[in-house]
Design a protein around this nucleic acid. Structure first.
Lengths: 251, 251
DNA sequence: AAGTGGTCTAGACCACCGT
DNA sequence: CGGTGGTCTAGACCACTTG
């Protein structure tokens, strides 16, 4: 990547052209994917990377800027640039949009109910892009806000990636699920899509959330992706929205 | 803003320090607020602005970059930089998250039902930060997807800003409401917050949406803001989510 | 060809963090 | 103090649009 001979650079009239900073970004993302730099680690300094890629600091900077905007990296002035991690208060609630109507900050607590390996149904297989019948870790958990049950989550994970996950392990963990996934299985969630609907409570979910069957619940279906846009989690969350709501910012 | 004498710049050990590019950004936002550059207009070129502010092009560029990231401006290579507008297919559905389950693109059509000036209730006044009893334009409309009624919106607008809005005007308009607000009243929505809940249908909304009273509807409450974070619209949307859902991307 | 935004460089200096 | 990211400059050249 320099002005001289040794460049993977593709210049000008080429359909596959991409600017230097993007090539560098792609390379760095690959480094993240391959675990060369792990969550929480400091990556090399801008000057170091500029030297390594034989480009100016400004070009490295632009690559890092984009990755920071995508929450892949976190910059800290004077200290360095770090691989983002769910094991960090700052990004702890990045994927949790449910909040109390009162606006207060309350403590949320996850109560795991069950955890088992099952065979992927056709629906699960389609979402996770695996084969029907392939192993899937299915877990159910109740999310409480200040002790009050608010969300019942039914979570399905690509079995291949989460072998050995048990109810005991989940029970002994006090941080977010994604923090555990990242730490124990090296699977980092970087993006998710959620689909929301209003549905009537069934006896099972209603019972756990303290609402009568037939009463409205907010159903949040989430597909979560790791590097390379690979879906690794599908979950259904049944939310009681009597005293809580799903908050979304439209930019 | 130069290295010489004539600068509003505040340097170094100052609690109110802000970098040059941010001062330029603030100045440009003020220009937008004051209508100096209207929606759809081209703003001066980067070189022109650099000369005007007496800074380098890179500094202006950084200011514009941020504004483009916030959807205030739109860059078009070779043509110029333009003030964002809702009257533009590209940003037409920027605030509409409801989509058919099938994933098809379908035509949505707004059917205005009523439009009147009312006195702000305590709740409306609080959200819009106006006085209780102040004039508010209240309008109700039905949103159809492929003819099928899907959303009933109850919309409240700061009366002072939307004087003279009538049902006839709404009926004769085929683009988005925000496009009309921007064109007829010079009020541009730049940001919104939505709060979602599941609620039982009442006879009124249920009737219009074709669901029985008591059946679950998705309630979307939106507060929309114009420049300076000023709330100018509050709306409640009752959505039938039998064949549609609210889609959200979590970055 | 002229004008716009997009990329890249080389170098300067500042702000912040740790030792 | 040295090392990090953050800001800013001046100038070069490329890519895209329009006339």
């Amino acid at each position: 990547m320099n002005r001289e001979a040794s460049r993977p650079v593709m210049r000008s009239p080429s359909p596959t052209f991409s600017p230097l900073y993007r090539q560098i970004k792609d390379f760095m993302i690959k480094s993240l994917e391959e675990g060369e730099w792990g969550p929480g680690d400091a990556i090399p300094s801008e000057a170091e990377l500029a030297g390594r890629f034989n480009v100016s600091q400004g070009t490295v900077r632009k690559a890092i800027d984009e990755m920071a905007a995508e929450n892949l990296l976190v910059r800290r002035q004077g200290k360095g640039t770090f691989v983002a991690t769910h094991n960090d208060p700052r990004s702890y609630y990045r994927f949790l949009r449910l909040t109390p109507d009162s606006g207060e900050k309350v403590q949320s607590l996850s109560e795991p109910l069950s955890c088992a390996v099952i065979a992927a149904t056709r629906e699960i297989a389609a979402v996770l892009r695996i084969g029907e019948g392939d192993p899937v870790v299915a877990l159910e958990r109740l999310l409480r806000f200040n002790g009050e049950p608010v969300v019942l989550d039914q979570i399905y994970l690509v079995g291949e990636l989460f072998q050995g996950l048990t109810l005991e392990r989940l029970r002994g963990y006090d941080r977010s699920l994604y923090s555990l996934f990242e730490g124990d299985y090296g699977v980092r969630m970087i993006r998710a899509e959620e689909r929301l609907r209003a549905v009537p409570a069934d006896p099972h979910s209603g019972g756990l959330l303290g609402v009568k069957a037939g009463e409205p619940l907010l159903l949040v279906e989430r597909t979560a992706f790791t590097y390379g846009n690979k879906p690794v989690e599908w979950r259904r969350g049944f939310c009681c929205t009597k005293r809580h709501h799903y908050l979304n910012e439209l930019g």
